[in-house]
C-alpha cells in the first residue's frame, strides 16, 4: 500500500444511547449488538478507507463517559478534523442535545472541522413511521444553516453508515495534494510527532552524529 495516507481524528458526540458506539462498531467491524453496553470507556479505534487513490486512516475517538456531567476534556475534540454529532430520530431530546454539540464544536474545536449530523435508528421507522420524532426537514435545515454533512442512518441494518465516513473522507484535504495550502496545519503535525512507543530511531540518529 504505497498511496499516501491521511490520518483523520474523528470524534463522536451525542446524547447517551443514540448509537454512537454502534455506528463505530458497524463501520469498523460491520457488526451490531442489540444490547450494547453504555460506553464508559473507549479510547480509540482505527479504520482505513480507500477513497479514490488515497488511503484515509480514521482515528475514531468514542466518548469515555466524561461528557455525562458536562465534563468532557477539551483534548477530546480539540484537534479533531471531523466529528459525528449523533441523535436518535425517535428521541427529540437527543436532537436538542445535538444542536448543543454543534454549537460547542463551532466554539471550541478547530475552525476547519468537518461535522456530520447523523440521525440514527431509522430502521425503527420502517415498521412504524409514527415513531419518527425528528423531522428530516428540521435536521436538514440545521445542517444547512451550520454547514454540516447530514445523514440518516441505522447502525442496526448498516444503512448509510459507510456513506457517513466516506462523505467525511471526501471533504478532508488530502495529504500530498494540498500540502501547499494546508488548512491550519492539519496534517503537517504528523511529521514532527514523536512516537513514544518507538525508540528504534535512536540508534540511527546516534550513529549519524557520532564521530
Amino acid at each position: 500500500m504505497s498511496n499516501p495516507i491521511t490520518s483523520i481524528k474523528l470524534v463522536l458526540l451525542g446524547e447517551a444511547a443514540v448509537g454512537k458506539s454502534s455506528i463505530v462498531l458497524r463501520f469498523v467491524s460491520n457488526d451490531f449488538s442489540e444490547n450494547k453496553e453504555p460506553t464508559i470507556g473507549a479510547a480509540f479505534l482505527t479504520q482505513r478507507v480507500n477513497i479514490n487513490d488515497h488511503t484515509v486512516k480514521f482515528e475514531i475517538w468514542d466518548t469515555a463517559g466524561q461528557e455525562r456531567f458536562a465534563s468532557l476534556a477539551p483534548m477530546y475534540y480539540r484537534n479533531a478534523q471531523a466529528a459525528l454529532v449523533v441523535y436518535d430520530v425517535t428521541k427529540p431530546q437527543s436532537f436538542i442535545k445535538a444542536r448543543h454539540w454543534v454549537k460547542e464544536l463551532h466554539e471550541q474545536a478547530s475552525k476547519n472541522i468537518i461535522i456530520a449530523l447523523v440521525g440514527n435508528k431509522i430502521d425503527i421507522l420502517e415498521d412504524n413511521e409514527n415513531e419518527r420524532k425528528v423531522a428530516r426537514e428540521e435536521a436538514e435545515k440545521l445542517a444547512e444553516e451550520e454547514g454540516l454533512l447530514f445523514f440518516e442512518t441505522s447502525a442496526k441494518t448498516g444503512t448509510n453508515i459507510s456513506e457517513v465516513f466516506l462523505g467525511i473522507g471526501e471533504k478532508i484535504p488530502l495529504k500530498g495534494l494540498e500540502d501547499e495550502h494546508n488548512n491550519n496545519g492539519l496534517n503537517v503535525t504528523e511529521d514532527q510527532r514523536i512516537n513514544l512507543a518507538n525508540t528504534a530511531n535512536a540508534s540511527e540518529n546516534a550513529s549519524a552524529c557520532s564521530c
Binding site: 460491520n30 479510547a43 479505534l45 482505527t46 512507543a197 518507538n198 528504534a200
Partner: peptide
Amino acid sequence: PTGASVNGVINYENAIEDDEEDIQMG
C-alpha cells in the same frame, strides 16, 4: 486487521492499535 469482524469482539475500550508502528515499551 481493522475492519475484520472478530464476531463482535473488538478491543473496544483500549484498541489503540497503530498498525504502522512496532509497539515497544520505552
